[in-house]
Write a protein that binds this DNA or RNA. Structure first.
Length: 947
RNA sequence: GCGGACGUGCCGGAGCGGCCAAACGGGACAGGCUUAGGACCUGUUGGCUUAGUGCCUGCGCAGGUUCGAACCCUGCCGUCCGCACCA
């Protein structure tokens, strides 16, 4: 059934939107990146956008909902490289993908082999992705689809970057990246073994230079603020260090270190070596202290970490403290290294930082506390180091031993001391990975500094100011994300925007660089109004010049210079002006700090104010059976599976009904099955409505049902307009059904048929955005003309909303429940039930109190006010009732019907109640009986006597 | 570390100062319908309470503000998300 309607829609082209006189609505979602089969994560955003788009279309808007595809970046390239390199895993994986579409094994082989060419991957998967998306029943205008590799897109991006450059937003500079020497390339998280599980970060070490004769001993530290506590320098006695000319200086450091420095834009010439052992016992000059300190042995200096030389701060570094202690406690060890044991024993830790609860010598204190007695307790030492770092760094204050930095917070001292080292040429910077890491080919990952990296500099000029202005005017749903935008805008600084590899658009003025994939996808929505027309008019690459885009998008520039007839340009400009800006972008919340923010920046950089984004909405993530979807867990649910097992409507209904748009959706097969089941029931009910219809006046007993239907219509409309899809779905899938069942239970066949006639169209229309296939099918079965997908959204007849009728129904229901409670408590099968309607004066009292409550909740005030009226005559009773009433205002009925109406309502329901309880039911006025029980009656709560 | 969000019944999840023992959905239990199963219908599903439509306890934990708090404030505990060159 799904396929049938999808084809019918395509054939009738009802979702192809063109500029016209109608009010437009242009909704977009992030174009998906090709990565094999689409799964329910991809499907969430499009489904939600589609429900909304369908609603607005039915509301009479000219809705454009397009989808394009993103192919930029390294992943697609990575696939083709892997296949070129005959990577068996990747080949198998892609064979499997292809097999889902192609049955002939030879053909599968041929297709996968062709993937050596990345374009072939794109060519193969794009149509499949469109098909897979289509199985969801999307109301997408596919004519306007393109990929980020298409020439139209590339030309647009080139135009965008030329604009950036003219505005001074593009700058060049040095930049550290994760790098593999063997691959001679930068590597991303995906390229690193376990890069996703244990991310590799870039750490900045400060190199500290120790004058040592005419050379410099170079140590590396993460904590320059501790340098006043230096007592000695550690070198590894078993390591042979290198000596190298670095600029005008001669440095001593590990060979590995120099290799890294070479990659980090240092001018290094290795000139010789020196054994660690030979440095022991000698002295070098410590920066800040400006005095000689001794060089001592430590086997824990790793030549592949920093420089392989470590400056020792035993007061704050547990490793240093234990190393020092080992040496001090062992005369033999000193003798082995030809050190004067007495001298070594004189070395004392220097207190430098006071931090909460650790005293002056946190390393000493903590080692004692944790029972650390040996340098070999590596794990404990590392933990202790981290703890001191955390506490010392965030709560610490520099002591009087720290010269001009005394009294300063450690965080501040750190920055200032680092700066002092750098400006005084006593220090430098080296980048290290936060953990040892290997690329997928096994090669070591280090950090390289790229020179002349292109950046987008968000801090230039009024860029941020404009972005904030755009944000201010933009609708953000949920509103709580606005603050997150503001915060993001604050820390956005310079962003590298080009790489040396990957698919995408080349920088027009520096074609060695490819524009990075998040930077090339910030204004592509501007192509949706145009792309199919550019193709229709057969415009070529040579036409898509700066002038072309200037004119079509901005209405400025020299229109005659691009070789496109003015008429065509005007047609394009007109279409563009009609649609742009987009009215709504629906996105994953995780995209906020990058894609969405860049999108806003790009728009304010390129477009004028009236073309800035109008609205952004966010959805939550999708879990599968309570867990993140991943191939390794095997819980990825593809759209192909969804289509096979459940069909589009079940998917849509589940997705929208299971959770609110902004929350996490948990896909649980058992729950989805239930939804499928429910839709089956719903379908049967609607079919019986179709089969059994008649025109004619509706009986009085359906007043409340009609009221509810109208109310639900109004609510559904409201919820949809606010994109509160869960509430909408619950209303039309469940509430409407429940009220229908309840409200039609006791109707005659004839009345039922009339209700059916009334409700059927309404119900189908309300369902149409959510379950379009089901709605379309039943619409046709009911003999309605045209597609329900483009039928007019129903108006709620507010005048039929009858709160009193609804209340009366609840009133009777409450009585039923109360009678049941009483019967259960008394434990009798009732033979006769008497209902006593409360006295007239009680209605007066409750009405009065209800009014008074609008003003105050103060018991005294209310009591006094009541006593001023005629009710004073009932003073004693009032004193009894009032406190109870005020204690729980829930007891006060929504409407005070009054004695007459209450009695009449009970009379109307009497027959039903008698049937329900299988006994005779008497209704009496409480003031017309001597029965004690009757005195308990309250408005809305008749007293009940069971016999 | 920085920034943000969340914590409600057997479960998913509403509620965002009074109408809350808590919408809606699901599960479980009991009954009806049925050859049976499914579907469907009815009732029950925190504790106490056998003349009663009530009372008590309860919305992560501990306090506070208020006539009144799941909802506001403070602290604590726990869970999740984002932090850029990655799509």
């Amino acid at each position: 059934m799904d396929r049938k309607w999808q084809e019918a829609w395509t054939k009738a082209r009802i979702f192809e939107a063109n500029a016209n006189e109608q009010e437009k609505f242009f909704i977009t979602i992030p174009y998906p990146y090709i990565s094999g089969s689409l799964h329910i994560g991809h499907a969430r955003v499009v489904t939600e956008a589609d429900v909304y788009a369908r609603f607005l279309r039915m509301k009479g808007k000219n809705v454009l909902f397009p989808i394009a595809f993103h192919i930029s970046g390294t992943p697609v390239l990575g696939i083709s490289l892997a296949i070129k390199n005959k990577d068996p895993q990747k080949i198998d994986l892609y064979k499997e993908y292809v097999r889902t579409y192609v049955k002939n094994e030879e053909e599968v082989e041929r297709i996968v082999a062709s993937f050596e060419d990345p374009q072939k991957i794109v060519d193969f998967f794009i149509p499949k992705m469109k098909d897979e998306f289509s199985t969801l029943g999307l109301s997408v205008d596919w004519r306007r689809s393109f990929t980020s590799g298409d020439i139209e897109h590339q030309k647009l991006v080139e135009w965008q970057f030329r604009k950036y450059r003219k505005s001074g937003y593009l700058v060049q500079g040095k930049y550290p990246v994760l790098y593999s020497v063997a691959l001679a390339n930068a590597v991303g998280e995906d390229d690193i073994i376990d890069g996703d599980l244990d991310p590799v970060e870039k750490q900045e070490f400060v190199l500290v230079k120790f004058p040592f004769g005419d050379q410099m001993l170079v140590a590396a530290t993460l904590r320059p603020e501790t340098l006043f506590g230096q007592t000695n320098v550690w070198v590894n006695p078993d390591v042979t260090y290198s000596v190298a000319q670095v600029g005008k200086e001669r440095w001593i450091a590990s060979e590995e270190c120099f290799d890294k420095l070479i990659l980090q834009e240092y001018n290094v010439t290795k000139t010789g070596t020196v054994k660690g052992r030979d440095l022991l016992g000698k002295y070098c000059t410590a920066p800040f202290l400006e005095k000689e300190i001794i060089i001592l042995p430590s086997k824990h200096c790793d030549p592949d970490r920093g420089t392989g030389i470590v400056t020792s701060v035993p007061s704050d570094a547990p490793f240093d403290w234990m190393s020092l202690k080992t040496l001090q406690d062992s005369e033999d060890l000193c003798t082995e290294y030809h050190l004067d044991h007495k001298e070594i024993r004189k070395i004392q830790p220097i207190p430098i930082i006071t931090s909460k609860g650790y005293g002056d010598l946190p390393a000493v204190t903590l080692c004692q506390k944790q029972g650390i007695t040996s340098v070999l307790q590596k794990k404990e030492l590392t933990e202790a180091t981290q703890e001191i770092y955390k506490v010392g760094f965030h709560t610490g204050v520099m002591k009087e031993t720290c010269g001009q930095y005394s009294g300063m917070a450690t965080t501040k001292a750190r920055d200032e001391m680092k700066a002092a080292l750098l400006t005084g040429k006593k220090g430098a910077i080296i980048f290290e990975t936060s953990r040892p890491a290997k690329a997928r080919d096994g090669s070591k990952v280090v950090i390289a500094v790229i020179d002349k990296q292109w950046f987008l500099d968000f801090t230039v000029g009024k860029w941020k100011e404009h972005a904030r202005e755009a944000l201010k005017k933009m609708e953000v749903v949920p509103e709580k994300y606005r603050k997150q935008f503001e915060d993001t805008f604050l820390w956005l600084d310079k962003r590298p925007c080009a790489r040396r590899r990957g698919l995408g658009t080349k920088l027009p003025f520096d074609p060695r660089w490819v524009i990075e994939s998040l930077s090339d996808s910030t204004i592509y929505m501007a192509l949706y109004p145009l792309c199919h027309l550019i193709r229709q008019y057969k415009l070529q690459e040579k036409h898509l010049t700066e002038d072309f885009f200037d004119y079509v998008l901005l209405g400025e520039g020299k229109a005659d210079q691009c070789g496109v007839p003015r008429k065509v340009l005007d047609a394009l400009h007109k279409e563009f002006s009609y649609w742009y800006p987009f009215d709504h972008r629906h996105t994953f919340a995780a995209h906020l700090s990058n894609h969405l923010s860049f999108m806003i920046f790009a728009h304010v950089a390129i477009f004028s104010k009236h073309q800035w984004p109008k609205k952004v909405t966010f959805h939550g993530m999708v879990l599968s059976e309570g867990e993140k979807m991943s191939k390794s867990k095997g819980n990825v649910v593809t759209l192909l599976e969804v289509n096979e097992r459940y069909g589009a409507d079940t998917f849509r209904a589940f997705m929208c009904n299971s959770t609110s748009v902004e929350s996490t959706c948990n896909w649980e097969t058992a729950e989805v099955e239930k939804m499928k089941n429910h839709l089956g029931t719903l379908c049967r009910i609607l079919e019986s409505c179709i089969a059994h219809r008649a025109t004619g006046p509706l009986p009085k007993s359906t007043l409340s049902l009609i009221s509810r239907v109208e109310r639900i219509t109004a609510q559904a409309t409201e919820k949809l307009a606010a994109m509160e899809l869960r509430d909408y779905a619950t209303l039309v899938l469940f509430e409407l059904m429940n009220w229908y069942k309840k409200g039609t239970r006791k109707l005659t066949r004839e009345d039922l048929a009339r209700v059916n006639e009334y409700i059927l169209t309404r119900w189908l229309l309300l369902l149409a955005p959510l379950t379009p296939h089901l709605a379309e099918e039943l619409w046709q079965k009911a003999g309605k003309k045209g597609f329900i997908s483009i039928a007019a959204w129903p108006h709620a007849d507010i005048s039929k909303i009858n709160a009193i009728a609804e209340y009366k129904e609840e009133f009777i229901e409450n009585i039923e429940n109360d009678i049941r409670t009483v019967c259960r408590l008394v434990n009798v099968q009732p033979k006769e039930i008497t209902l006593f309607v409360a006295d007239h004066w009680k209605s007066e009292l409750v009405s009065l109190v209800k009014d008074l409550l609008k003003e105050t909740h103060d018991q005294k005030t209310i009591f006094n006010a009541v006593m001023k009226t005629d009710l004073r005559k009932r003073g004693e009773d009032v004193t009894k009732i009032l406190p109870a009433l005020l204690k729980d205002v829930g007891k006060i009925p929504t409407f005070v019907l009054g004695q007459e109406d209450e009695q009449a309502t009970l009379h109307d329901a009497c027959a039903d109640l008698e049937q329900t309880f299988g006994c005779n039911i008497k209704i009496m006025m409480a003031d017309k009986t001597t029965e004690q029980k009757a005195r308990a009656a309250l408005p809305g709560k008749p007293a009940i006597l069971v016999r």
